[in-house]
Design a protein around this nucleic acid. Structure first.
Lengths: 217, 217
DNA sequence: GTAAAAACCGTACCGTCATACGGTTATCCG
DNA sequence: CGGATAACCGTATGACGGTACGGTTTTTAC
């Protein structure tokens, strides 16, 4: 039997290298050779794990999409487990998309770069669409759940609301990225909180009838 | 004296060709040779008008940015001249960014493609930032003007409101582009109108005390 | 030990593209 | 008319990058 290696782990390493390169120097700077060098392996090995460069990029994009969705999922799950007000939970979920620090800024650059290329790469576009769909579904579910405990008006349609919330988050992300210092004297962080919370306030118009405090409090 | 040519017109033609290529096949498909062919001229001539490819792309991006700003400006000007309700005027301005038809979809693809490359091209980034700034300023001015005739609460800060409005428009544009058919049964056009108007309703909370009808009515 | 199979390496090849450059054509002024 | 100058053309060139490919090393089962 031949020597073995952790296939998924290798692919993850390569995806990591791709993301690092994109975040630091842009998608155009991603070459197979540079990726291999960044990942600390040879060109041939990268080829061993990905038949083509496109496939490599696709896998990288899928990886970041999955990571983002997982983070959102996790926050929602933790929030509902701890019976926190949904408006608070969603506020944090949405703020996650806004590039207020280095980490989120790097992630923003990566997703934007891929989204840009996705304009003419159907495989990448599908990942983009699917990621957005799932996040929107999460938000819609959050709004729907809000009805059960009275945070949301019973006759509100969750889908347009979810579209609005996601739109504000993504649009705000664009603006904060362009103007990291904020707008007209208002720092970016304050602006983000203000805009997101104002938006959430139009959806979550009531307070939860049940337990809204922290579990340990 | 030598033979003459309309310098600006030639550069406009080239920018046009670049935009067509970007809209149809993406920014990666833009080569100097292809651009020249699309514009119906030789490679050498393109070089005659632009020292480098980067300069060519920069000029193209500047051109589309200026066109977009001009359209927004024009709508606002026409609206205020005709004394139409500001909420209506801004609704149309914001909808202008949402890719609901072929024209806007093509423009969206162009701006997104350039914005993507702008992530690692400072010159392009500056155009992107400046364009967004001016549009936001227009919106803020609109909100501010709304105070004078009572459409907007006097104590509302126009800047966060402008950020919100632009964020919704840009974010909605992303979602409509990804899901041109709409979301969960709601067609894109209806969704756009609903989201934008809902958003405007949170800013323009009053009705104009003065003349709000059409001038000819 | 050894054979097989996979993991891994380095390079050669080929196409593409931006740019440089020498040459040609058209126009205008004197 | 003529020459000067800009408009315009076509190609050569050099760099770069994706992929094909042959070779080497390592591990494991028998």
């Amino acid at each position: 039997m031949p020597r073995t290696a952790d296939h998924d782990e290798r692919r993850r390493q390569i995806a990591e290298a791709v993301c690092a390169l994109v975040a630091d120097h842009g998608l155009d700077a991603v070459t197979v050779a540079r990726t291999a060098a960044t990942a600390g392996m040879s060109v041939g090995l990268v080829q061993h794990y990905f038949r083509s460069k496109d496939e490599m990029l696709l896998h990288a994009f899928r990886t970041v999409g999955a990571r983002i969705r997982a983070r959102a999922d996790e926050r929602v799950r933790a929030g509902t487990d701890h019976r926190r007000p949904l408006a608070r939970v969603l506020s944090e979920v949405l703020a996650e998309f806004v590039p207020l620090d280095g980490t989120r800024r790097a992630e923003f650059r990566v997703t934007r770069a891929f989204a840009g290329r996705a304009l003419d790469a159907p495989a990448l576009a599908e990942v983009d669409v699917e990621t957005a769909r799932l996040i929107r579904a999460d938000l819609a579910r959050g709004v729907h759940n809000g009805k059960e405990c009275g945070e949301v008006a019973p006759d509100l349609d969750p889908w347009p609301a979810a579209v609005r919330l996601l739109a504000v988050a993504e649009g705000l992300a664009l603006q904060v990225y362009r103007d990291p210092g904020g707008v007209e004297g208002t720092p970016a962080a304050e602006l983000t909180a203000a805009v997101i919370d104002a938006e959430l306030a139009t959806v979550f118009t009531g307070t939860c009838r049940q337990y809204t405090g922290r579990p340990g409090a």
